[in-house]
Amino acid sequence: MTLMHDTVSGWFDSHCHFDFACLDDERDEQWALAQRLGVRGLLVPGVQRSQCEQLAVFCRQRPFYYALGLHPYFIAQHQQDDLNWLEQTLQDQLSGQKLVALGETGLDWVLATDATQREEQWFWFRAQVMLAKKYQLPLVLHIRGAHDEAVSYLRQQQFPCGGMVHAFSGSEQQGRAWRKLGFRLGIGGAMSHPRAHKLRRTVASLPLDCWLLETDSPDMKPAFWGPDNNSPASIPLLAAILASQHHLSLPVLAVQLEQNLRQTFPRMMAVG
């Protein structure tokens, strides 16, 4: 751990639900620990309107950035007017430096068990893609079981802003298709589990230019993580796993990940 902190300029958690209430009693402690281990900042995605309404204040005094979006997991809570609210809030907050993307949005065929539910997800996804295109924002995407469909749609729309596919678990071919569209792939605790052989092969086979590190805290716990909730403090150990898959030193990895981050979220200023 000390070696990681001393030899790299810092790590960034590119997808972290650090505002969730389950972290309220431990947030300050976990962030202090993460900073001691060399984590310099994080990106908090939006998932539903009531939570998005708090993000600007939550991130204001910290080296945190945020995205605004409506997640397919919370589709039952979304109201038609939330899209009007989202567009107005994008207009109001784009003048700041903390809003860097639109999301978390996407398609999750694990959650959608019939055609009606899939069409409902498509409605919210299409609407948010159009907003991201209108306001020239990258997307933060949640995609499960629908990589080919999402890639095809964004290609048809000639979406120009790229973004991040969070918690990527697709194939090497799908990963290359995303990268060709200008997206990078989020990787975190899933690659640490003993049975994740296929995912680690995909991580190793795709260029380092494809990847961003994330925790998805408080979820997506790595195999080595003991506490109930995941934390951005796990990022340095995830970095060590990613470096080993590509046979790189940690300083070289840190430089590449920083470049990936800045290219993916160009509105992001220097962290820290």
Score class of each variant (00 low, 15 high):
3 L>Q: 15
5 H>G: 00
6 D>Y: 00
6 D>M: 01
6 D>F: 03
8 V>N: 09
11 W>V: 10
13 D>V: 13
17 H>W: 14
17 H>C: 13
18 F>G: 02
19 D>N: 12
20 F>P: 03
22 C>I: 14
22 C>K: 11
23 L>P: 03
23 L>G: 04
23 L>N: 04
24 D>V: 09
24 D>Q: 14
26 E>T: 15
27 R>I: 14
29 E>W: 07
30 Q>L: 02
31 W>H: 04
31 W>C: 00
31 W>M: 07
34 A>F: 08
35 Q>R: 01
35 Q>D: 05
35 Q>S: 08
37 L>T: 00
39 V>H: 09
40 R>W: 03
41 G>N: 03
42 L>K: 08
43 L>I: 12
43 L>A: 04
44 V>A: 10
47 V>M: 09
48 Q>M: 11
49 R>K: 15
50 S>H: 13
52 C>Q: 12
53 E>Q: 11
53 E>T: 15
57 V>K: 13
57 V>M: 12
57 V>Y: 15
58 F>P: 14
58 F>C: 06
59 C>A: 13
59 C>F: 06
59 C>I: 15
60 R>P: 05
60 R>C: 15
60 R>M: 13
60 R>E: 13
61 Q>T: 13
62 R>V: 10
63 P>Y: 05
64 F>N: 07
64 F>C: 10
65 Y>Q: 11
66 Y>M: 01
66 Y>T: 00
67 A>M: 07
67 A>L: 06
68 L>A: 10
68 L>I: 10
70 L>Y: 05
71 H>F: 04
72 P>T: 02
72 P>W: 00
73 Y>S: 07
73 Y>M: 08
74 F>V: 12
74 F>S: 02
75 I>F: 12
75 I>S: 13
80 Q>C: 06
80 Q>V: 08
81 D>V: 07
81 D>R: 10
81 D>T: 06
82 D>R: 12
83 L>A: 01
84 N>S: 15
84 N>K: 10
84 N>P: 01
85 W>H: 12
88 Q>G: 08
88 Q>D: 03
88 Q>E: 12
91 Q>C: 13
92 D>I: 06
92 D>S: 11
92 D>R: 06
94 L>P: 00
95 S>T: 06
96 G>W: 05
97 Q>N: 08
99 L>F: 03
100 V>D: 05
101 A>V: 11
103 G>F: 05
103 G>K: 05
107 L>R: 02
107 L>H: 02
109 W>L: 10
110 V>K: 08
111 L>C: 11
111 L>H: 10
113 T>H: 08
113 T>W: 04
115 A>Y: 04
115 A>G: 10
116 T>G: 05
117 Q>M: 13
117 Q>L: 10
118 R>F: 12
119 E>F: 11
120 E>P: 03
121 Q>M: 09
123 F>P: 02
124 W>Q: 02
125 F>Y: 13
126 R>H: 05
127 A>M: 02
127 A>T: 00
128 Q>L: 04
129 V>T: 02
130 M>W: 09
131 L>G: 03
132 A>E: 01
132 A>L: 07
133 K>V: 07
134 K>M: 09
136 Q>D: 04
136 Q>G: 08
138 P>C: 07
138 P>G: 11
139 L>M: 13
139 L>V: 06
139 L>W: 06
140 V>T: 14
142 H>G: 09
144 R>V: 00
145 G>N: 01
145 G>S: 05
146 A>W: 01
147 H>C: 01
149 E>R: 10
151 V>D: 01
